[in-house]
C-alpha cells in the first residue's frame, strides 16, 4: 500500500513528450527488486504531486533495471518528466494481469502496438527473443503518428535486422525524407507472416486503433479467444478498492490491464461504460 523509494539511474527522452526512466530500489531499501510479468504496471509517485499508473517496459529477466516509458500529459507525469539521475521516485507494484506468453508457447505471435502502446509490449519482445525456440513466427506491427513519435527507434532497427522477428513500422504522416511505410498499422495484418489459425495476438494502443486491429485480425478468421488487448482507465489505488478503473464488471487494475478480447468484446461497444 505504501510506495517504496527508488532512485533514478538514467533518463532518456524518447520523443518530444515521452521519456523513459530506469530505476533501482533506493539505497537502504533492503528488499530485492520486484520481479514482474510482461504486461504488468507500477504506480509511480512523484513527491507531493501524485501517482500515475505506468506499464513496465523493461526486460522481465532483469528486474533490477526497472524501466518505465512515460508520456508527460498530466500533473504527475509532467513532474516525473522533471526527474533527473539520482532523484527519488516512489513505486507501488507490480500490479495487474500479464500477456499470455504461456498460452502462446509453440504458436505464432502477432504483436500490434500503437503509439505509446509499444511500452507494455516491449517486455514481450524481450521475453520472446530470449526464449525464441519456444515460439513460432513472431511479428511486431507498430504504428505511430509520425517518424518522430516512434518509441525505441534504435531497438526497432536492431530487431528489424534479425532473421527471427518480422518488424513492420507504419506512420500516419511523414515528410518525403521518411523511407518507411506511411499508412495505418492495420494494413500490415493481411500480409504479415503468421498463421491466423494458430497465432496469439497481443494488442496495445488507443482503443480505436485496437478496435481496427481486432477487425483486421478477425478478417483472417483468427479465433477471438486468441486475441488479447491491454486496457486503460483512471486508476488511484491499483488494488481494486477505489472503484475508479471499473469497466463493466471488471476492475482494470486487478482483472486487467490485459484482457482476452472475448471477455471484453461486448463492453467495448457500450459507450461511456
Amino acid at each position: 500500500m505504501v510506495p517504496r523509494p527508488h532512485t533514478v539511474r538514467r533518463v532518456w527522452q524518447e520523443t518530444h513528450d515521452t521519456f523513459t526512466l530506469e530505476l533501482a530500489p533506493a539505497a537502504g531499501d533492503g528488499a530485492a527488486p520486484s520481479s514482474f510479468a510482461p504486461g504488468q504496471f507500477n504506480m509511480l509517485y512523484a513527491f507531493g504531486v501524485g501517482e500515475a499508473a505506468i506499464s513496465i517496459s523493461g526486460d522481465p529477466a532483469r528486474p533490477e533495471r526497472l524501466v518505465h516509458t512515460i508520456r508527460a500529459v498530466g500533473a504527475t507525469t509532467k513532474a516525473l518528466a522533471r526527474l533527473r539521475r539520482g532523484d527519488t521516485v516512489g513505486i507501488r507494484g507490480p500490479f495487474g494481469s500479464q500477456w499470455p506468453l504461456g498460452e502462446a508457447a509453440g504458436r505464432d505471435i502477432v504483436i500490434i502496438a500503437g503509439g505509446i502502446g509499444l511500452a507494455p509490449l516491449r517486455p514481450v519482445v524481450y521475453h520472446v527473443l530470449q526464449n525464441r525456440q519456444n515460439y513460432g513466427n513472431v511479428v511486431l506491427l507498430y504504428g505511430a503518428r509520425s517518424p518522430g513519435d516512434l518509441l525505441y527507434a534504435k531497438e526497432l532497427e536492431q530487431w528489424r535486422g534479425r532473421f527471427d522477428l518480422e518488424v513492420q513500422v507504419a506512420v500516419d504522416r511523414a515528410p518525403a525524407t521518411w523511407r518507411g511505410t506511411v499508412g495505418v498499422v492495420t494494413n500490415f495484418i493481411p500480409r504479415a507472416r503468421f498463421d491466423p489459425s494458430e497465432a496469439v495476438a497481443m494488442i496495445c494502443g488507443p482503443e480505436i486503433m485496437m478496435r481496427f486491429a481486432v477487425q483486421g485480425i478477425e478478417e483472417l478468421e483468427m479465433k477471438s479467444e486468441s486475441i488479447y488487448i491491454s486496457m486503460e482507465r483512471n486508476m488511484k489505488c491499483a488494488v481494486g478498492f477505489c472503484g475508479h478503473c471499473q469497466f463493466g464488471p471488471a476492475f482494470i487494475c486487478k482483472d486487467g490491464p490485459v484482457f482476452s478480447y472475448e471477455s471484453v468484446r461486448a463492453l467495448l461497444n457500450i459507450r461511456g461504460i
Binding site: 507531493g48 477505489c242 472503484g243
Partner: peptide, 10 residues
C-alpha cells in the same frame, strides 16, 4: 458505496 480517491498534499 466504497469508492475513494486520493489526495497528495505538501
Amino acid at each position: 458505496c466504497f469508492c475513494t480517491t486520493v489526495e497528495d498534499v505538501t
